[in-house]
Design a protein around this nucleic acid. Structure first.
Lengths: 227, 227
DNA sequence: CGTCTAATTACACGCATGCTTAATAAATCC
DNA sequence: GGATTTATTAAGCATGCGTGTAATTAGACG
């Protein structure tokens, strides 16, 4: 009878107040998950609150209710993703004396492979002019990481393990370039290079990268000794 | 007398119709310049038509008048910037037999230094999910450039100039990483690494990069000969 | 049972966006 | 010199944005 009154609709529209079964944390969690996916794929500005809410299947106002607003949601997500990385840098900064340069790149690359959103997030926030947290990111990453790496490189040079005729700062830059860019390019790489981004490829890539880098910056003192 | 009528204002507001002195191409040019600066700095989505018009000092409607709309303006700009690069790739694809791999990176790096917006533009359009021209960019760049480079690398391997135990596709990836990323990072690099982005630094960077790359991927057949 | 709190919805506000249109005036043409 | 074309402006349109807010309801507490 095409009844459009509100009394008998009861289709998919949820009624107004508090829901019957209390699944409180559920909404918060769903919002976080949807927002993480969208923000990491398209960036902060390109994703709207309504898009996030729609993807999470909840009302828009819940963003304000749980996170205070769109920036609060973004901050929550970035903090969660970036915390372990920051901790890693700090740990490296503390015990920098017993770290092997060659294994460091493998560690970093494993980090990118485990958290595939991180390279894009860092590049978007740090290198492009985008993102509302740029200053924080720059303070957290390049300004903390680069001096540690530079000191490491200089130490290895003094010990005669790295070519001393190279500019240590540019060696650091090359390390970051080789270690980070392939993961930035991964979505395109898999199509253009015809490779699959699986564990086997990751091992292959790490071996290749460390190989190319070390045979470039390592001193060739005894070229015929180790094959 | 606080006269607010339109007859005697005559301040900065231009009168409605066609301007007295015909500076027709001027407006078009000013729009292109302003749009190029803004688009390259902040990306397509983050820049509004009104921002561009305001920066160019012209009316918003002129964007539609001259370019049909915001996408038309963007297309015009990207085409102009990307044309020479595309031509370069095609030329390389044609006469790929007499190209030296080592000098190629220097050429590319000089290209980035001359057109500082290009690396950011390419990364934004190709690697991130952003940008309305992503498909076109992918077809124009990685899908055209990568096979050419790969063939070049394989040829150099067959000639015994490059290590044959490396994966040619990953060598190409490393070349692109080392050649492109430093220019992506340039705005941050200059602050974090404490360097100035001048001609001297460019030469230094090119020398360093080719050095690191070639001593990594080149065959060490006569290690003691050239010191 | 009455009150209070937590969780959720619908709605609307003000603003910015890209785009369109009508009006207008100089330049040009026949 | 009247008609047409070209270049420009102001105003407005629909849409989408982030954010508020009042209403509503289930559960908790006394």
């Amino acid at each position: 009878m095409l009844n459009k009154s509100s009394a008998t609709v009861q289709r998919k529209r949820r009624s107004r107040g508090r829901p019957r079964t209390a699944h409180s944390e559920d909404v918060r969690e769903k919002l976080l998950r949807a927002a993480r996916d969208l923000f990491m794929r398209y960036g902060y500005r390109a994703v709207s609150s309504r898009q996030i809410a729609s993807a999470a299947g909840v009302n828009v106002a819940m963003i304000r209710y749980y996170f205070g607003g769109k920036p609060g949601l973004y901050r929550e997500i970035t903090n969660a993703m970036v915390g372990p990385l920051r901790a890693g840098i700090d740990a490296m900064s503390a015990g920098a004396t017993q770290i092997e340069l060659a294994s460091l790149i493998g560690t970093a690359m494993r980090m990118w492979a485990t958290n595939p959103w991180l390279p894009g997030l860092i590049v978007r926030e740090v290198l492009m002019q985008e993102g509302p947290l740029r200053a924080m990111f720059i303070r957290d990453f390049p300004e903390r990481l680069v001096p540690v790496l530079e000191k490491l490189v200089r130490r290895e040079m003094e010990r005669g393990r790295l070519r001393a005729d190279l500019d240590p700062r540019l060696v650091v830059l090359s390390m970051i370039s080789l270690g980070l860019f392939p993961f930035l390019a991964l979505p395109v790489t898999s199509r253009v290079f015809g490779v699959r981004a699986d564990e086997a490829f990751l091992q292959h890539l790490i071996r290749h990268t460390t190989d190319v880098l070390t045979r470039g910056i390592a001193v060739h003192d005894a070229p015929g000794s180790k094959k």
